[in-house]
Design a protein around this nucleic acid. Structure first.
Lengths: 197, 197
DNA sequence: TCTTTAAGAAACTTTTGGTATCTTATTGGC
DNA sequence: GCCAATAAGATACCAAAAGTTTCTTAAAGA
């Protein structure tokens, strides 16, 4: 009775695929090795022989995806704008698309594990800190105008929140925010943006 | 035999404390209600009566922390700079400090679940995408200078990565990146920063 | 064809999340 | 100060799922 049996690369491809499907649907938290075995149509020992933890497998699966879709790299694309502005828009546009399709979407679900209602509470917390941030920056800007400095008065919320978001992002990805980088943030990013031209 | 028995606010404070310790050490993924019961020196039913999921408890614990340290709010502080630059530096400085002590550090561990070595792999992935991003933006900037536009040539890596980081952050916190916000990013943030004055 | 390697089936053990039951300390009303 | 109501905590229990072991057999290579 010739039961066919996958092995090697073919088998692993199926495992990675199953892994990504699960992460996609249930987040990293929902990823367990037995589940993967089932979804990939293989058995638990096969999985346990190769990986020790769901996280290890998750990383491998994402890396596999990246390897597989590497052609999608942004720097391969040809830009067609005829100004810095146009090129930048084009680039960011593509980035936004690639971050959706590409392995990046998995990267996101690697970090977040949110079911809809849980999301609510979290959302509220972030919003609240944003409000605090906003008041703080408004205070700073007001002092500047009172002092007679030329500051834009029509700043969008996104612009006001930029420095805080920047710092938070760095905390997320565990990149140290040094004194030097903070100075760079103020001098090379914030001042050019906030200053009235 | 007078076994003392905590209740109400006192008990809950201990539970929150235990919760934060666990999140701190093992990340959100490592947080389970039985573990909390053990760490808080109480029993499972006490926990289960109040919360249904680890996530609920996590949110409550962080909110408790925020309430508790609310005095740390940035907008309470008095600014003493005598220029926009000085004020901004002061503000971001405080923000950085508060994000460390404050509940925000928990917010971080809410999203990430990393034991040290797992961190490595993740770090590498992020670094690699950063390199790709960097090449892409370099291409854009080169085209601009070739075209004769006035573009700064001494841009720090942080400045080059800014747009990508900004988009990624928004993806993380699940804030939609609209066409409009993308345009704002280019016009109000990138162009002022990248343009030679 | 024979040997080696690895996949897969199945049974089993262990862990742990979650529930139900019961006892007893604490609080507050009388 | 006594009694009833409330809630903490101990314990036992259940169920599900993680993880392991053993064994069989398909696939690959010599």
């Amino acid at each position: 009775m010739g039961k066919t049996r996958r092995r090697g690369a073919e088998l692993e491809a199926a495992i990675y695929q199953a892994t990504r499907t699960i992460i996609d649907r249930e987040g990293l938290a929902g990823l367990t090795l037995p589940k993967v075995a089932l979804a990939a149509g293989t058995s638990k020992p096969v999985i346990y022989r190769r990986w020790n933890t769901p996280f290890e497998l998750a990383i491998a699966a994402v890396q596999d995806q990246i390897r597989r879709e590497n052609k999608g790299n942004m720097d391969q694309y040809v830009l067609t704008g005829n100004s810095l502005r146009a090129d930048l828009l084009q680039l960011m546009h593509r980035f936004l698309i690639s971050i959706d399709t590409f392995g990046n979407s998995y990267l996101q679900s690697l970090f977040t594990e949110i079911s809809q209602h849980e999301n609510e509470a979290l959302r509220k917390m972030i919003d609240r800190s944003s409000q605090i941030d906003m008041r703080a920056i408004d205070g700073v800007l007001k002092r500047a105008t009172d002092r007679g400095e030329n500051v834009r008065t029509d700043l969008a919320d996104d612009l006001k929140l930029l420095p805080f978001d920047w710092v938070r992002y760095n905390i997320f990805v565990q990149k140290e925010v040094t004194e030097q980088r903070l100075t760079m943030l103020v001098d090379d990013i914030l001042l050019p943006i906030y200053s009235q031209e």
